[in-house]
């Protein structure tokens, strides 16, 4: 995936079954952000793979003061890429393998 400067990783092991999964997001490269970023650390949150959309979480992060509005799309894209990877991995495990 494209380097957005914002890293999103699994904060727990994915057993491939639960729909709600813990993710951890942090800024790896501040220069990629448009807005002034207050370095608050890694943000851990749970994301429902079936019912939620990355845009909504990014919006909540902006509203909570972690990021500025102008970086919402970047944050959202970073989450979306990770979520797509998790889903792709799950499909591969289900359809491939045994």
């Amino acid at each position: 995936a494209e380097d957005t400067g914002v890293r999103v990783e699994l904060a727990e092991e994915d057993d491939g079954k639960k729909t709600s999964i813990a993710l951890r997001l942090w800024v790896e490269d501040q220069k990629k952000l448009k807005g002034k970023y207050k370095d608050s650390g890694a943000i851990e949150f749970t994301f429902d793979l079936e019912r939620e959309v990355p845009d909504a979480v990014a919006q909540e992060m902006v509203e909570s003061g972690f990021f500025l509005e102008c970086d919402m799309k970047l944050v959202s894209k970073s989450i979306r890429d990770r979520v797509a990877l998790i889903k792709w991995h799950r499909e591969r495990v289900v359809t491939g393998g045994e």
């Binding site: 890293r7 790896e28 608050s40 650390g41 890694a42 851990e44 949150f45 749970t46 909540e60 909570s64």
Partner: peptide
């Protein structure tokens, strides 16, 4: 510890903790 919690009005919890140095890109 330096872990803090932020709860958004929609109910989502954000747990904030320091990022280990090793996880940051060289500037």
């Amino acid at each position: 510890s330096s872990t803090t919690q932020v709860v958004h009005s929609a109910g989502r919890r954000f747990i904030v903790s320091p990022v280990p140095e090793s996880r940051l890109k060289e500037q």
